[in-house]
Design a protein around this nucleic acid. Sequence first.
DNA 1: ATATGTGAATGGGTTCACAGCT
DNA 2: AGCTGTGAACCCATTCACATAT
Lengths: 216, 216
Amino acid sequence: MSTIEIPDVVIQRLPLYVRVLAGVLSQGTKVISSKDLGDILQITPAQIRKDLSYFGRFGKQGRGYNVRFLRDELRQILGLDQMWSTCLVGVGRLGEAIINYPGFIPEGFNVLAAFDSDDKSVGRMVGDLRVDSISNLDEIIQSKCIQIGIVAVPASDAQSVIDKLVSSGVTGILNYAPISAQVPNDAFVRNLDPVLSLQSMTFYLTRGNETSIDAI
Amino acid sequence: MSTIEIPDVVIQRLPLYVRVLAGVLSQGTKVISSKDLGDILQITPAQIRKDLSYFGRFGKQGRGYNVRFLRDELRQILGLDQMWSTCLVGVGRLGEAIINYPGFIPEGFNVLAAFDSDDKSVGRMVGDLRVDSISNLDEIIQSKCIQIGIVAVPASDAQSVIDKLVSSGVTGILNYAPISAQVPNDAFVRNLDPVLSLQSMTFYLTRGNETSIDAI
DNA sequence: ATATGTGAATGGGTTCACAGCT
DNA sequence: AGCTGTGAACCCATTCACATAT
């Protein structure tokens, strides 16, 4: 076991592999080659083999990868063999959509609490959750052992919300707000910003085609 | 003027620069150095200067960059000096949140039509929009000159929706569905997938800290 | 003095190509 | 024969460092 630094791009591809493996498994495919996996994801076979080689030797030469085994190994590497407890901050329309999104639970992400700064929203039921006041954030995060905070508040509030989450012990932030969040480096942020995505896409749209870009 | 291929990572950073420049401008800052810009975004000054040098010489040696001028130049480079017409497909909770999101219009993105495959949803008003049937998609996209499609349908429907959008002439897709979408290479996709973001973050959360990752 | 713009150097991720296993 | 695993080669992005301008 060595301390080779694994590139973040590699880490970001692993969930894609997990997703495709789960898909082909449900279609009854037992074994898959790096080439077939790559064809589905539009990634070179060499890339896939190299990515996997950071973590071990999962394949059989001459045959390929056992789909179920590789999926399970990757899930374990990513920490997806456990449930993750999350909370939502900001119960606007986006927040409601997040709470009711059916895609989180099957992947092991549970939204266990919802907070809003607006007193009119507090107490209201959204999905299965009662909206709590942000003033109870620290207490509830600790009592429910929440590990991940999902931030869906306006840009102006986002940094202070993230600060509160981090100081309550949350180390993972999924940030929907259009800001460049600052966190201590024992915490991690992933941003989902539709405006940034659109604004970088329009560069290519203004220039017709030719400049093919990769759909991550 | 040459045909140096500009890396997509560079293109993706430009909107960040625009955002920060607009922010400091509204606070009255007239001139900014690459160092100050970099401090805000946690990007090295050299990176910023190199990025900008792909497109021209916007700064003054010894002084820095005129904030308003640089913002305007970058907006023009990105094609943000025009309005963009978009449509939404999939008027579920997420779709409603997207339609009502106040962050698009000030950045020049207008959602001009909304489509849903569910007949019970068609005809309903969401925000200012009347939900249309997907069977009218082609006609309305052409009549409203829609350039970008925002896809907020379940995974199972997403690829066929994207196919319809592309064949109606849309060349930009903002995809919220958890699939690896396939498009012809005169079209562009940007994905927003909260599950993938979470699943790559948990890798780091399971390992405590040390492995600092960059918040894009 | 101070900060840009840019070739050169460095570093890091991807692809190649082949040994080795089935 | 077919496909993995991996060092080496390659390529691309970042950083350095300095000439240049104010």
